[in-house]
Nucleic acid binder design. Structure first.
Lengths: 189, 189
DNA sequence: AGAGCCATGTAACCGGTTACATGATTAG
DNA sequence: CTAATCATGTAACCGGTTACATGGCTCT
């Protein structure tokens, strides 16, 4: 089983969805820790259906294309549960911006400052988005965001990771840009 | 050109190396933002050589296998320089541990706590490693770590990203584990 | 005797991305 | 009239991982 299949199971365990819905939810709700396009999702669902991890209900629609609403089987939930506490490899991220940093001594100064300031902005933007999102959860879901048996708790702690990640990244970008600006200013004097 | 080719150019711009050396350096020096095995590196070097971005000197050795020491050509350096300030996509990381968190409401409590405490430990270990590494740079290289024209500055700011990243990750793992432990304790009362 | 390092290369495989394909409905 | 949304599927491609292949030297 691929990790994507567990992502799909995890989403379907919350609510039954079509392949199209899954693609949307991955884009909007879990994009900060996973991504997948429909070209990958549909074959995965077919595999999982054959393996008995999910079943679908065919829904004929008049004014839109027909669709298949998938939900996990008991075997699917059991497979997900069993997988959840198995060891996780820390996947060393491939980060192009850190690569630029590692080669920064060769680069054009002004262009580099612009690049890092731009990324600082992007990450602060995301940070604000995630914080608004978490605030909404707290308001909307109340105490359930602290109940480990609720999916709302799960959403809450996951987005907390997004927030910490973006904050640390934005701060680093700003710190790098500031260092470059400082020495640029010193040289002009 | 693939990103790996720029990684290799970036390393070769610092000092000429063999394919084997490059694999070692990627494992030891830049693993926190990139990785690659020799099965990918050798074909990449051959492509770059054909494209005129690098040249190699053949070194015959008596007691070890012969090797090829690569160094970038002027065209190679120019290509790297030009690429360094081009826009960077923020690649949404695929993070399996956050996926576990997102499904945590289905998981076994004790196993989950163990998983997150283990990752907290792993990230604190890496954090300590990177901090020692940065400390060594500061002692060994002195003022050069603040000179944007020096590769030492580049190494210094890159590892700073590793430090910030690991610290934020470890803190999140600890925070998640603490939340789970808290409610586990409350239920026992 | 066997494991591990140095050193280079190829081949099979696999996950993921992008593009191709279809087609009705709705909003600008 | 055009673009976007809903909805599903396949095929080509590409980057990256793992395994196959070779072979001498050194250390335990």
């Amino acid at each position: 089983m691929t990790t994507l299949e567990y992502v799909l199971l995890g989403l379907l365990a919350r609510e039954p969805l079509s392949g199209y819905d899954l693609a949307q939810q991955i884009k909007t709700r879990v994009a900060f820790f996973w991504r997948a396009q429909h070209g990958q999702i549909y074959p995965a669902l077919a595999r999982m259906e054959r393996a008995g991890l999910v079943v679908y209900e065919f829904v004929a629609q008049a004014e839109r294309p027909n669709k298949k609403i998938y939900r996990p089987t008991e075997a699917g939930i059991a497979a997900l549960r069993a997988w959840l506490t198995t060891p996780v490899e820390i996947a060393p991220a491939r980060d192009e911006l850190v690569l630029r940093a590692y080669c920064i001594w060769l680069a054009d100064r002004a262009g580099t400052i612009a690049l890092f300031r731009e990324h600082e902005r992007l990450h602060r933007e995301r940070l604000a988005l995630y914080e608004r999102n978490q605030g909404w959860m707290a308001r909307e879901w109340g105490e359930r965001v602290h109940d480990p048996n609720s999916p709302h708790f799960a959403s809450y702690i996951a987005i907390e990771r997004g927030i910490g990640s973006e904050r640390a990244y934005a701060e680093w970008c700003g710190w790098v840009a500031a260092q470059l600006e400082q020495t640029a200013a010193a040289n002009e004097r």
